[in-house]
Structure formats: C-alpha cells, structure tokens
C-alpha cells in the first residue's frame, strides 16, 4: 500500500509548524509519530496535500512534575511515558496505559499528542487523560490557549483543535487516591473492544474507551461513587446514556454489558490499590 503523493514540510519549531499550517489549514496534516495518520494514508482514507513533520521540534518530549499536575510534552512517545519515573510515581495510570497502547513498535513511535489530537474513541490514552482530568495546551495563530480535557473530544476523530492549531502539552492532575485500568480485546495488539480508565478518591472520574463516538466519561458511575456506592453498584450504571458501536468484535448490547463488568473490575482494582 502506497500513500497518495503529498508535499512534505519539516517544522523546526512550533511557530514554524503553525506558519506552515496557516498556508492551507484544511489540506495540511501534522505528522508526529505517524502511527495514527500513516496507516490511514496508506489505505488512502486520508490524502492530505501537505504533511508538516513536527517530529523534530525540540523540547516537546518531556514528563515534568509541575506541582499540582504533571506536564507532558505532546511529542512524548508512549514508551517514554511508560518508563518515566515522574509519570510512574505521580500519574501511574498514565504510565500504565501508555504501556498498553498497540505493541512495542507502536509505542516506540507513537506520541501522546498525536494520540489525543487524532481523537479516536478506541484509543487508550485519551481515556486515561480524561479520567485523570486536566488541561491541554494548544498553540495557534492567536497564541496559546488551554482547553480543559472535558471539552476536548467533540466527535468521532474530531477534537477542539482548530485546523490551524497544534497541541503542545498535556497537563494531568496528580494525587489520585487510586486508579484502575481495564482493556478488553481479543488480541493484545488490538484496539480495545471496551476500555475503562478509573481514578478514585475525592473526585472520582471514570472514562471509557470505544463506548461511543468519542472518549466519554461514565457520569452515572461517578455520581454513584460520589454518593458512596460500592464499586459493583456504581459499575451497574456504566452504560447509562451511552450508545456504543456495533462491529465485528462486539454488538452494542454486549459492549453495554461488558462495560459494567470492566468498570467494576477497574474500580475494585483502584480501591485495593492493585491498579
């Protein structure tokens, strides 16, 4: 499979990337690790006229302890996030989930920024970030803005990122009392059929993978937990208000069942500290 022809531009800085984007925002795609975009281009499901390679921009790969939150550069690869000491001690959910994405080769190339910007509801990292809560730092022609993660995922492969903007940093909250992650698939390398990222404590947040057109929070579960419900009782509300997809791997009905089991297991893991 060979992608359709495109013009290749390399950005040395965020400003340069933004300037290149501005020339033809709709016909241009940013290329980081390429593990979301290149497969689509090979199948010719995506045929951008211009690729702006941001992979060489310096200073965008880091995991930093920033007091009440951890700041992660958008070009941080899954492998680097998985093995980051800061991530492992301060936001272990994120480090763990980074180690569950795709396979080792994918984790050596794929970046957290690319994964979030792609906005695929079947991806793991968006759910982890959504569960942790935090802010996405976005740069665009008008300067830098901060987008709360709760307002970032708008639709299938659609985010709050404008066509002329670039995601540069991800900030996630520290201090969760416990966390759990469940990924259910038929082969280890595959996308999750259903996934659950859960954070418990004073502000419990539960985010779901592949349960709708976007990464979503299980609001009913969170309400129940806040009201003191047991994991099992809270998990029973996991599919509330959701209309998950039906595909080769699972029907809507099965996903609605599966999510209640996986949420319960994620919460049980979180509360017993087993992850």
């Amino acid at each position: 499979m060979i992608p359709a022809s495109f013009e290749y531009r390399r950005a040395g800085s965020v400003d340069e990337a933004l300037a290149l984007l501005r020339q033809d925002p709709d016909g241009t795609k940013l290329l980081a690790g390429g593990h979301s975009l290149l497969p689509l281009m090979k199948l010719r499901l995506a045929t951008p006229g211009v690729l702006v390679d941001v992979g060489r921009i310096g200073g965008l790969s880091y995991v930093r302890d920033a007091g009440d939150h951890v700041a992660i550069g958008a070009l941080t690869r899954h492998r680097d996030l998985e093995t980051s000491d800061v991530a492992r001690s301060e936001v272990p959910l994120l480090a763990h989930v980074a180690g569950q994405v795709g396979d080792p080769q994918v984790r050596h190339r794929g970046t957290i920024g690319g994964s979030l910007a792609h906005g695929d509801p079947a991806s793991d990292l968006p759910a982890a970030v959504l569960a942790l809560g935090g802010t996405l730092v976005v740069q665009g022609p008008g300067g830098t803005r901060e987008v709360p993660v709760d307002g970032f995922f708008l639709g299938f492969l659609e985010t709050a990122l404008g066509p002329d903007e670039m995601l540069t940093e991800i900030r996630v909250r520290k201090g969760a009392a416990g966390w759990g992650f469940q990924k259910f698939n038929r082969r280890a390398q595959d996308w999750a059929i259903v996934g659950v990222a859960a954070v418990v404590g004073s502000d419990p947040r539960v985010a779901l993978v592949n349960m709708g057109s976007t990464t979503v929070r299980a609001r009913g579960v969170e309400e129940a937990l806040a009201a003191g419900a047991s994991p099992a009782d809270a998990a029973a509300r996991a599919a509330e208000g959701l209309d998950p997809p039906s595909d080769l791997n699972a029907s809507t009905e099965y996903r609605q069942h599966l999510v209640t089991v996986l949420v319960r297991r994620a919460l049980e893991g979180a509360t017993t500290g087993r992850g």
């Binding site: 290749y8 390399r10 290329l31 390429g34 593990h35 290149l38 497969p39 090979k42 390679d53 992979g55 492998r79 080792p104 080769q105 994918v106 050596h108 190339r109």
Partner: peptide, 19 residues
C-alpha cells in the same frame, strides 16, 4: 517489516523515509 531505529524496534512500513 520491523527494524531498529536508533536502537528501538519500529515497523518500517509506518515510518516515512523522511522521518
């Protein structure tokens, strides 16, 4: 198509020569 890029495994069908 796995090769090592800077010592780490990558799938060379999903990396541009330019990268």
């Amino acid at each position: 198509c796995t090769v090592l890029m800077d010592g780490e495994s990558v799938k060379s069908c999903t990396v541009l020569a330019a990268q």
